[in-house]
Amino acid sequence: MDQDLKTELSKHGIFATSFEELYNWGRKNSVWPLTFGLACCAIEMIATTMARYDLARFGAEVFRPSPRQADLMIVSGTVTKKMAPQVVRLYNQMPEPKYVIAMGACAISGGPFRDGYNVLKGIDRFIPVDVHIPGCPPRPEALIHAFMALQEKISAQQLSGESRPRHLKQELPSEFPVPEFGEHGLEPAQNDEVFRNPLKVLQG
């Protein structure tokens, strides 16, 4: 429906919407994050949910202790190589539609621990990330901003057509391979289906 017509109708007390808008409006205001913290960023995430910053204003106060009941994974902190398979497994256990916020420098790239032998250099090597927040750790306002960015992303998703999101495309995976512990590191070191491999980008 034309946006001008909708505005005109609303002036006359008529509310017009589409099923898609209504559906996304409901989804974006009821995101259930997974109770899941990895490092100091988790403390900021906890602060975000408490009275002062109050993530409940955005409909995400219900942190679920089970991945089966959650649809948002906030990767809050350093992902060690030893923890990475468990993070991917938790992601795989979440039902669609599911979203990921990579919170802080560590979750994005390894952060200050990037040179460490035990640190995964970004969770986007194994699972698709919807919103990245920089910061070490990001302020609660930054997490709220990321959450609002995610809400915008959800409300812009189309339920049909070629540009529909991943979870509505049958041929695209909803689970991603869990890396194994190898002799020298994780095997594979990244999932090329998900990760924007800089070597391949350079080679064109």
Binding site: Y117, K121, H184, G185, A189, Q190, P198, L199
Partner: peptide, 13 residues
């Protein structure tokens, strides 16, 4: 100790 070569692809690039 040398980390595995595919550990840090951004540096390799």
């Amino acid at each position: 100790y040398v980390p595995p070569p595919d550990d840090d692809l951004e540096i390799l690039g």
